[in-house]
């Protein structure tokens, strides 16, 4: 749900940072403060060898337009977005520096089947095909090498998101452990359970501080790519530890869908494999 709601920021934040005045005027006036407006972005591609720094989607200069070719996957609300920001490699640019954003209107590409993920099932994501979509020059978002900065931002947000899911699982397991009686006393009064909860609490504190530090660095205009990347990976690992153990503390009740911990366990697996909130 959170990621659905966050989808427009994947469009709006890059636009705010790198858009021309004309682009900002056009798209920000489409954003209505009192209602949810569908905007999104498309980055991830359907390949087990997907690499953000080596996109397969290309944008080729053709007279007045750029012609986009390639497939994107895990595009949040691709079916209903008013506009989608597609990241593609332009010309011969190398690595992250060669990536720009291309704004496509609703219907500007083929929306394929809805993605079926392990967790995050409330999330509406689709694969899309660009099929030679044409993007006029004034709809190009020139990132001028700023793509790494955008990734740092999304990765920082990902750490915070991970912290939230972990907290949900931890708090649920903690409350359960205090209520659940075994051998005449709450299971939380046994060290095997209590120490696990302590470990979970430590990891949550650590990942939250990592999110805060990355966010603080972004606020200061510092290069946050490394910090955010390390933090995101760490948080994603810790999230598996936390949600797995939350499920474990509930025992059989953790495995059934009557309790939400199995859902958080599935949701948590996404954090390590997500990029730019895609999949997530």
């Amino acid at each position: 749900m959170t990621v659905n709601i966050l989808a427009p920021s994947l469009f709006n934040i890059p636009l705010m940072l790198y858009g021309t005045e004309e682009q900002k005027k056009k798209y920000f006036t489409m954003n209505k403060p009192d209602q949810f407006q569908g905007f999104t972005s498309a980055l991830v591609e359907p390949s087990v060898r997907f690499d953000t720094e080596a996109l397969k989607t290309t944008a080729v200069d053709d007279v007045d337009d750029f012609v986009l070719n390639g497939d994107k996957a895990f595009v949040t609300i691709a079916d209903s977005a008013l506009a989608t920001l597609v990241f593609a490699k332009k010309g011969s640019g190398e690595g992250l520096a060669g990536i720009d954003g291309f704004i496509l209107p609703s219907g500007g590409f083929t929306v394929k089947e809805r993605e079926k993920n392990q967790g995050l099932r409330a999330l509406k994501q689709f694969s899309i095909s660009l099929d030679g979509a044409r993007v006029p020059r004034n709809e190009v978002l020139k990132l001028s090498g700023g793509f790494a900065n955008l990734l740092a931002r999304s990765r920082t947000a990902s750490i915070a998101l991970t912290t939230g899911v972990c907290r949900a699982a931890y708090e649920y397991a903690l409350a359960y452990a205090k209520e659940r009686i075994a051998f005449g006393e709450p299971i939380a009064s046994r060290q095997s359970v209590a120490f696990t909860l302590a470990e979970m609490a430590m990891e949550i504190d650590a990942m939250r501080l990592m999110a805060w530090k990355s966010a603080w660095m972004l606020d200061k205009g510092m290069d946050t790519y490394k910090e955010a990347s390390i933090g995101k990976r760490y948080a994603a690992d810790a999230a598996m530890f936390i949600t797995r153990n939350a499920t474990q503390i509930l025992g059989g009740h953790g495995f059934v869908r009557e309790h939400p911990v199995e859902m958080w366990y599935r949701d948590a697996r996404s954090f390590a494999v997500s990029e730019f909130m895609a999949i997530v």
């Binding site: 087990v48 690499d51 720094e53 990891e203 501080l209 390390i230 933090g231 760490y234």
Partner: peptide, 29 residues
């Protein structure tokens, strides 16, 4: 290569990044 996908990374760099993350986590706490 911070932030590179796993198939583009070697064992040693993965271990080094892991160490750095752990140091960072402990230091922030």
């Amino acid at each position: 290569n911070y932030g590179k996908p796993l198939h583009k990374r070697g064992y040693i760099e993965t271990v080094l990044e892991d160490m750095e993350a752990k140091i960072s986590a402990a230091r922030l706490l």
